[in-house]
């Protein structure tokens, strides 16, 4: 019973974080067709800005929306500076990888300059611990397990049930046709980056509440998000969400039975087998488009 509960909580918790990260990557890939390597530093930057805001004494209820707004603006600006000018280039995928990698290095080093190397920690969303099913868990983790699906459901609702979400899905499928029904394609590209950065920042705040923050804290979550989107397919937003939880549970099971050390290797082995059988991912389809 103990094992089941531990795996259940571990899987739900990791899966929630991975889903928050992976969805943002997939959102940008499906709408613009580029891969955003600044996604990890966006997460980190969100956590650092939250730290500064709570240091100056703002209540957390105010910090959270502020960070989301600021990071959405950062995402928009990033898109306008290192992605939009390159649209239409024949080798755009590769060039955007470079510009976003360079931007990531820039933000990472700037963070080090501004905030210094000393590690920091954010206050948890809810302080304290509890015991559920005989397993001790922090309330912060419980909060994340509850909040993440709500956020993801809100994103799904936005994409599938609102006019703006519909426009975002349309741009992903056919740019010319989008222009001809009067969509503002450039603004929608900016919106995709803004939403993606806001989601990453939220994940950063979640992570900064239970682990020490450092300028490189986004690297591992970015890697996991990459694995998740490869696994779940890049062609939708729902695919990576399922894949994120699947991988979260896989990791929880692996680290329970084989230890933390073997988990990355096993994960990679599963990834390779998946790609050899289904190159487009388990939940993927060959088309590019949000759903």
């Amino acid at each position: 019973m103990d094992a089941t509960a531990q795996i259940l909580f571990g899987g739900l918790f990791q899966g929630s974080l991975y889903a928050m990260m992976a969805v943002g990557l997939a959102l940008i890939w499906t709408t613009i067709g580029v891969f955003n390597f600044t996604h990890g530093v966006m997460m980190m930057l969100g956590a650092y800005i939250a730290w500064t805001l709570s240091e100056i004494g703002l209540p957390f209820a105010l910090v959270l929306p502020l960070v989301i707004v600021v990071m959405a603006a950062v995402g928009w600006a990033l898109q306008a500076s290192v992605v939009r000018p390159l649209i239409g280039r024949p080798n755009i995928v590769l060039v955007v990888v470079i510009t976003t990698l360079a931007a990531a290095s820039l933000i990472e080093n700037a963070t080090l300059e501004i905030w210094g190397p000393r590690s920091k920690q954010l206050p948890p969303l809810i302080a304290g611990n509890t015991t559920i099913l005989g397993v001790g868990v922090s309330l912060h983790q419980i909060a994340i397990i509850v909040i993440a699906p709500v956020v993801l459901a809100a994103l799904w609702f936005f994409l599938n049930r609102t006019r703006l979400g519909l426009a975002l899905r349309a741009v992903a499928q056919n740019e010319d046709a989008s222009l001809l029904v009067g969509l503002n394609v450039k603004a929608l590209y900016g919106l995709a980056f803004a939403i993606s950065a806001a989601l990453a920042a939220l994940a950063g705040i979640f992570m900064g509440g239970y682990r020490f923050m450092s300028p490189v804290m986004g690297a591992d979550p970015l890697l996991k998000a990459l694995i998740v989107v490869v696994f779940g397919g890049l062609s939708s937003v729902s695919g990576p969400i399922f894949a994120a939880y699947l991988i979260g549970f896989f990791e929880a099971i692996c680290s329970y039975y084989f230890g933390l050390y073997w988990t990355p290797a096993l994960l990679f082995a599963v990834l390779i087998v998946t790609l050899m059988i289904r190159p487009e991912g388990i939940f993927g389809s060959k088309s590019r488009g949000l759903a």
Binding site: F35, L226, I227, V230
Partner: peptide, 9 residues
């Protein structure tokens, strides 16, 4: 893009 992801991984 999938080659980028796998080799990066």
């Amino acid at each position: 893009i999938y080659i980028i992801l796998v080799t990066f991984g």
